[in-house]
Amino acid sequence: MTRTQAATQAGEAATAWRRIADEIEAAIGRGDYEEGATLPSSLALAERYGVHRHTVRQAFRHLAERGLVSVSRGRGTQVTTPRFPYRIGRRVSMRANFGKLGVVGSSETLSTAQIVGDGETCEALGLQEGAALWRVEGLSRGDGTPMGTGIHWLSVARFPGFDTAFRAAGASMTAAFKAYGIDDYVRLSTRLTARLASEREADLLRIEPGAAVMVSLAIDALPDLTPIHLVSSVFAGERMEMVVEPFAE
């Protein structure tokens, strides 16, 4: 193949994916596909348009970047539904956030272990470096759809048997704390960043590897501001939006 032929093919492929993307966008605009509807597969569209599957996938990526569709493992490409607002105030609870929206929140414990805390984690919790910590991993869903996965760190000395308590509480941190006589706690700080999902995160959240995720590193404390809980959470960027309300309860 000559250089001119290669350039011609590349130009045709670029035109093809854009044409497919434009036609799908127009169909969404007309209401041919409702919110949450699953689009035809890349294979089906490739056959319809007489192109390679990669060309269709490029069209899907373009539509995803525009916020019109989301691409999920096992669920295909779906027309984007409104993002869930995740409110961050003095008190933060995913289930409470979802409950206010009429969404059923649920959580699952993925793993629990005792570890030797590193200096940074122990400092955040007000503990001596090397203190024994719980490392608890969980997955949260809204109406059955994975929304976020997180790793929690807590003092073993302060929360003996926390692995059992967390599972018994249905992976609800608020309910687990009540087993230790803690009926109220506040958000001390939240740091938000963004990056691309790892393969494991993508698998857990049912999103494409490399999709955008929001990362939250947060510290919860007793009302007297004694830190008790550090959590690093990863949220599916296409499904969540963070609403910071510093004075909200």
Rank of each mutant, 00 (worst) to 15 (best):
V103Y: 09
V103R: 11
V103I: 15
V103H: 10
V103A: 06
V104A: 02
G105D: 00
G105F: 00
G105N: 00
S106L: 15
S107E: 09
E108L: 12
T109R: 07
T109N: 02
L110K: 11
L110E: 10
L110C: 12
L110M: 15
S111A: 13
T112L: 06
T112A: 09
T112Y: 03
A113R: 15
A113C: 11
V116A: 04
V116E: 11
D118I: 10
D118L: 12
G119W: 15
E120K: 10
E120A: 12
T121D: 05
T121C: 04
T121Y: 03
C122W: 05
E123W: 07
E123D: 10
A124C: 13
A124N: 11
L125W: 03
L127I: 07
L127A: 03
Q128I: 07
Q128G: 06
E129V: 11
E129R: 14
G130Y: 08
G130T: 05
A132S: 10
A132Q: 08
A132C: 02
W134A: 02
R135D: 00
V136G: 04
E137H: 12
G138A: 04
L139I: 11
G142L: 01
D143Y: 04
D143N: 14
G144P: 06
T145E: 03
P146K: 01
M147S: 08
M147C: 11
M147F: 14
G148S: 14
T149E: 00
T149N: 02
T149Q: 04
T149S: 01
T149L: 01
G150C: 13
I151S: 08
I151M: 12
H152Q: 15
H152Y: 14
S155C: 07
S155I: 07
A157E: 14
R158E: 07
R158V: 08
R158K: 10
F159Y: 03
P160H: 00
G161F: 03
F162E: 02
D163N: 01
T164V: 15
A165V: 08
F166H: 07
F166R: 05
R167Q: 15
R167W: 07
A168Y: 12
A169S: 13
A169D: 07
G170P: 10
G170E: 08
G170M: 11
A171Q: 07
S172R: 12
M173G: 04
T174P: 13
T174D: 15
A175T: 06
F177H: 14
K178I: 02
A179C: 07
A179L: 11
A179Q: 12
